[in-house]
């Protein structure tokens, strides 16, 4: 990673992070599992960004380059950074995709184990890096004085692994428990919460007509205030509705995907895979092109 890369990236990441923090303003925050992960993302990513600053300045970077400090830095960006964002997304949308909610208590355990684990693993790396421990060494003598901190990192890594195991357990536990989430478990703002969980394969029966930034939210609040005010005149102007065309199901897309993947794998392992992969891709595309453009019964009307 060059010096210039770090200098440039700071500008944009500061803007993004500020925007993300400010997105909390005015919200009523519920500390559900996705929110915990999302909130944890912010300072973790921030720490990662800040520890990157010395790497962007040539003077300290001469000393820190190719030490464990770099590893600590970018793992704070990527691991607690993007992984927390990923898990926030998983916990948030899992009910929509599967129709069941993930267990809240297990989710919180998952979060805390990962949070503590991430910090325990990667923070000591800053210290050993500052002390001079180089990257890409698999062993070192005890005289270096790095034993304790590296042991902390190892314990942290095991904690993260434990957290992930909790998540896996949570997944199977929730799928077996089958606690239905309903359309809108989080009292959400956006349109995906207006359809069923899991959604039908066509998602929306008609392209929804929206007027405003938060149509679903407003609709829910309107229904509430209507009920309070006993407003019965709920006439909605029926605008032109359009069907959504859906393609018919087909095996060819997955064949093409598999062929492309196999072909790509061939570049790393064996030319035969490339040949086979390309062949599969071509056959898949050819067969796919014969599939009809629309399913026979694309008139999905829910009303």
């Amino acid at each position: 990673m060059s010096i210039e890369f770090y200098q440039i990236i700071h500008f944009f990441s500061v803007i993004i992070l500020t925007a993300l923090v400010l997105s909390l303003w005015g919200g009523s925050i519920r500390f559900s599992v996705p929110m915990l992960f999302a909130l944890a993302f912010l300072p973790m990513f921030g720490i990662g960004g800040l520890t990157g600053l010395p790497l962007g300045l040539s003077t300290p970077d001469i000393y820190l380059h190719d030490t464990y400090y770099v590893i600590g830095h970018f793992h704070y960006v990527v691991a607690p950074g993007t992984l927390f964002a990923l898990f926030a997304g998983i916990y948030y949308w899992f009910p929509k995709a599967a129709g069941y909610i993930l267990n809240e208590a297990l989710g919180k355990l998952n979060f805390w184990l990962m949070f503590i684990g991430m910090n325990l693993t990667f923070f000591p790396m800053h210290n050993v890096g500052l002390d001079g421990m180089p990257r890409r060494v698999y062993t070192y003598t005890s005289e270096m004085g790095w034993d304790l901190l590296n042991m902390l990192s190892t314990i942290g890594a095991l904690t993260i692994a434990l957290g992930v195991l909790v998540f896996v357990y949570n997944f199977f536990y929730s799928m077996r428990k089958k606690e239905l989430s309903g359309n809108d478990p989080w009292d959400g703002r956006t349109l995906e919460w207006s359809i069923s969980s899991p959604p039908p394969h066509y998602n929306f029966a008609e392209i929804p007509n929206v007027s405003g930034l938060d149509p679903f939210w407003e609709q829910k609040r309107q229904v509430q205030s209507d009920a309070i005010n006993q407003d019965v005149s709920g006439d909605i102007i029926q605008e032109e509705r359009h069907d959504i065309p859906m393609p018919s199901p087909s095996y060819f897309p997955i064949i093409v995907a598999f062929g492309v993947g196999l072909g790509a794998l061939g570049f790393a392992y064996n030319v035969a895979f490339i040949v086979l992969g390309v062949l599969l891709t071509i056959i898949g595309i050819y067969g796919w092109s014969f599939e009809p453009a629309e399913a026979e019964n694309h008139h999905e009307e829910e009303h």
Binding site: H242, D243, P245, S289, F290, P292, A293, E294
Partner: peptide, 23 residues
């Protein structure tokens, strides 16, 4: 290369340009 109806002359599904999307 689709051989299903809803191509050619009769109006296919609605598009925002009014033009056939495959074309």
């Amino acid at each position: 290369m689709s051989y299903a109806p809803a191509a050619g002359h009769p109006p296919a599904e609605h598009t925002t340009t009014g033009l056939n999307h495959r074309k």
